[in-house]
């Protein structure tokens, strides 16, 4: 049954009329039109749907709308500030860490979650954290390099 819920996404509050058992992914994409967050598997295995929920990287395809209420959400659309790319977005461009690009939103959001809790991750820590995200084009080595570059850039800004 539909009910009215308030969600805070990318610092903007939205009223959503939807069944609380709807996946957060479907709400973000279909109710709010933020299609940067992708569907890949529907069972939290590929990471394409990753968003930050209360700052934590979260698989939005297996998170219900009900579970997301009251926690701020950041999606890929929320990273660019005043036309300036987030260091992770810039690093993915610099390292050409994308081919078809479909996994990239989820990759960047997962990495953003990592750098928020561990600003200077080792290569092994990056690999471990990112192993829940799938890139079928095989961009993994470039993505590791991009995440390292972004971590250094963000440390440099402090």
């Amino acid at each position: 049954m539909k009910s009215s819920t308030e969600l805070e996404i990318n610092s903007v509050k939205h009223k959503v009329e939807a069944d609380p058992s709807t996946s957060l992914l479907e709400v973000i994409r279909q109710e709010l039109g933020l299609t940067g967050t992708k569907y890949g598997c529907g069972e939290g295995q590929c990471g394409a749907c990753t968003v930050l929920l209360g700052g934590q990287p979260t698989r939005s395809c297996i998170t219900t709308l009900g579970e997301a209420v009251g926690l701020p959400i950041t999606t890929i659309e929320g990273l660019e500030k005043n036309g300036r790319l987030h260091p992770l977005q810039q690093a993915f461009l610099d390292k050409a860490a994308l081919q078809c690009g479909y996994c990239v939103s989820g990759m960047i959001m997962s990495a953003a979650g990592l750098l928020a809790s561990n600003p200077t991750p080792s290569e092994a820590q990056i690999v471990e954290h990112m192993s829940g995200n799938i890139c079928r084009c095989g961009g993994y080595p470039r993505m590791v390099a991009a995440i390292k570059e972004a971590a250094e850039a963000m440390e440099g800004q402090k």
Partner: peptide
Amino acid sequence: DAREFVTGKHVY
């Protein structure tokens, strides 16, 4: 158009 992809703006 790589920027469109890393910002989630590209429409698949």
